[in-house]
Design a protein around this nucleic acid. Structure first.
Lengths: 208, 208
DNA sequence: GAGTTACGCTACGACGCGTAGCGAAAGCTC
DNA sequence: GAGCTTTCGCTACGCGTCGTAGCGTAACTC
C-alpha cells in the first residue's frame, strides 16, 4: 500500500505528489491489462502515468513491489455478505473472489508475484500484509458469524481453532485460485454449490 | 516433454543430439535452483549445458516452454501409494505433492509458468498435458481404488462423477499449493490429518 | 529569503534477447 | 567411398530494458 522507499517523515522540502502515486498505480493496472506481467516495463508505466522514470524508482525499488501495491487495493473490494446462512455466505464470498481473479490485472499479476516471493522474503511479507491477510480476515468473520448463528460449535481450544481457520483459508482460496488459473475453468454457481457442500460437510467432521 | 520446435520427421541429415536435450533440461533445473525463475537466462542455461545458445533456440521458442519441460519430468515421480485406506492414500499423495513443491526448482517455476499461461493459450495447453493431467490421474485412480474397497458409493451419473473428480482435484492441489507457496507454511502431518479429515467429511456430503 | 526535498529530463553503461552467417561435424542414401 | 542434408558451435550484431547519475527547476518549511 505504501511506497517501499523510505517515505519516513521528511517534514521539510517539497512533499511527494500523492497524485503521482495514484497515477502510477492506475497506470500499472492499465499496463497489466494491456501487456500482462512479463511484458510490463517500468518505462511504459512511467509514460502512461505521465511521470519520469526516475520518479518511479524513487518510490518502488522493483517491479514486483509496484505490482503488489497496484493490485492490493483491488482486494479491498472483498466483503463478507450476510446471506443468512453459512453456506450462502461462503458461496457469496467465493463468487466475489472468483470474479476478482477473472479480472485481467489480477489474473496475470497474482501468480507472478507469488512466484517471485518464493525467493524474496520482504516481498512475501508485503504480499502477506497487503493481500493475504485481507482475505484471511473474511474467514475469521465468517466463522464468528456462524458461531453467533449457532451453525458451528464454539471453539473449545483457541489454538486448534486458529489451525482450522488457516486450513479453511488455504482450502477455499487455493481451490478457487487453482480452478481459475490452473484448470482455467469457470467458477459458476454449480461449482460453487458443489464446493460449498464439500466444505460444510468437511467442517462438520473437522470441528468435532 | 518434447521440443516445441518441429522435431517432425527429418529422416535425413544429422540427427539431433538426445544428450543435448537431457543436458539442457538438467541445466535448466540447476539454473532454477541457483537463480530462480526471473533471473534465469537462456545464455546461462546454454553455458551450463555446454551447448551453444543457438542450439537452445532451435528446440525451444521461449523460456516458458523450456521451463515447463524441465519441471514436468519431476511430476512423474508422483504415485498413488496403496496405504490400505482412502484416508491414508490421500495423506500419502498430499505429502508427496508437498515435498515436490518444496523443491526449489518447482517452487519458483510452477507459479511463474502458470502466471504466464494466463496470456498464452499454447503454453496453458502444454502445462495441462505435461503437468496438470498427470496429477489429475492420481485423483481418478484414488477414487477407483476407493470404489473397489467400498469406501465410496459407486457413481450413479458418470457426468456428475467427473465434476466431483474435478472439484476434488482443484481442492487438493489448490490447498497444498496455497499452503506451501502463498501462506508459506509447512505441510506437516498434523496439517495433512486435518485436511484429510475435512476432505473425507466433505466427500460424504457431496457424493450423496 | 535560505535550506531541503521532489520532479522532469537526458544520457549512459550494462545486460539479456533473439537472429544471422559461417565452417565443421554427423548422419543417411546411393 | 561421394554427395546431400541437417545439426552444431561460434561470433557478431541490433534491439530493448534496466537502473543510475547529473542537472536545472519546482514546491514546500522555517
Amino acid at each position: 500500500m505504501q511506497s517501499r522507499i523510505p517515505s519516513s517523515l521528511p517534514r521539510t522540502g517539497r512533499p511527494r505528489s500523492a497524485a503521482a502515486d495514484a497515477a502510477i498505480l492506475e497506470a500499472t493496472r492499465a499496463a497489466l491489462v494491456d501487456l500482462g506481467w512479463s511484458k510490463l516495463t517500468m518505462g511504459d508505466v512511467a509514460a502512461r502515468a505521465g511521470v519520469a522514470k526516475t520518479t518511479l524508482y524513487r518510490r518502488w525499488a522493483s517491479k514486483n513491489e509496484l505490482v503488489v501495491d497496484a493490485v492490493a487495493v483491488l482486494f479491498d473490494e472483498l466483503e463478507l455478505p450476510d446471506n443468512g446462512s453459512l453456506a450462502a455466505d461462503i458461496g457469496g464470498v467465493v463468487l466475489q473472489f472468483a470474479a476478482l481473479l477473472n479480472r485481467p490485472e489480477t489474473k496475470t499479476a497474482l501468480m507472478a508475484v507469488v512466484a517471485e516471493s518464493t525467493r524474496d522474503a520482504p516481498l512475501r511479507e508485503r504480499i502477506r500484509t497487503s493481500i493475504v491477510d485481507r482475505q484471511k480476515r473474511l474467514v475469521l468473520e465468517g466463522r464468528a458469524r456462524a458461531h453467533a448463528r449457532g451453525e458451528l460449535p464454539l471453539d473449545a481450544d483457541p489454538a486448534a481453532a486458529a489451525c482450522v481457520a488457516d486450513l479453511i483459508f488455504d482450502v477455499v482460496a487455493g481451490a478457487v485460485v487453482h480452478r481459475t488459473l490452473v484448470s482455467a475453468e469457470e467458477v459458476d454457481e454449480a461449482w460453487v454449490d458443489r464446493f460449498t457442500t464439500l466444505l460444510l460437510g468437511g467442517l462438520a467432521s473437522v470441528e468435532a
